[in-house]
Amino acid sequence: MSLNRENVIWQTEQGTWSIGFFEFEYPDHEDFDPEWDVEYDRSLFWWVSTGHADPDEAVEAYRAEHANPGDASTCIEWSADTGAKIARYEEMATAWQAEHARATAAMDLRPSRERYLYGSPATFKQRTARPLRIRARTHLK
């Protein structure tokens, strides 16, 4: 099943293109459709990619990481009229990239076996509240 996810592609003042998918959550009712019944927070991004040569390259960056093709994007070219909206998207992208880098760094500090046991950064925070015990093995002959 392909899941619709709202996103925006924008051109920076420098001429590069970026794409951001808005943060979403599922409503709390029993007969919701996971494709269409989602609530978006348009002040946060769920996924971002920046610095592309054109809009198609931005879309391909998403498709390279996510099997779901998303949906048709809103595409905004930079101009004096769109500059304020694009500046807001740039701030949101910078915030997402900082949080993503922090979460990724925290996850990469774990031993490799642990990296695959815990899924999201939130789960990682819950699990690492306890100290990690490491047992050393000695091989005596």
Rank of each mutant, 00 (worst) to 15 (best):
L3K: 14
N4C: 06
N4T: 13
N4H: 12
W10D: 00
T12P: 09
E13C: 03
G15P: 10
W17F: 15
S18W: 06
I19E: 06
F21W: 01
F21A: 01
Y26A: 12
P27Y: 13
P27R: 15
E30S: 15
E30K: 14
F32M: 06
P34I: 06
W36D: 13
W36E: 13
V38C: 08
E39I: 15
R42N: 03
S43W: 13
F45L: 00
W46I: 00
V48D: 02
S49K: 04
S49T: 01
T50L: 04
G51V: 08
H52A: 06
A53C: 05
D56W: 01
E57L: 04
E57I: 07
A58K: 06
V59S: 08
V59L: 12
A61K: 04
Y62H: 11
A64H: 13
A67S: 02
N68T: 00
N68R: 05
G70W: 06
D71P: 09
A72D: 13
A72F: 05
A72T: 14
C75T: 15
C75K: 14
S79A: 11
D81H: 07
D81W: 03
I86N: 01
Y89K: 04
E90P: 06
E91P: 02
E91C: 12
M92H: 04
T94C: 02
Q97N: 10
A103T: 08
A105R: 13
A106M: 08
R113V: 15
E114W: 13
R115Y: 10
G119H: 07
G119A: 08
P121C: 01
T123N: 10
T123A: 15
R133A: 12
I134G: 00
R135C: 04
R135K: 12
R137G: 02
T138L: 14
H139I: 12
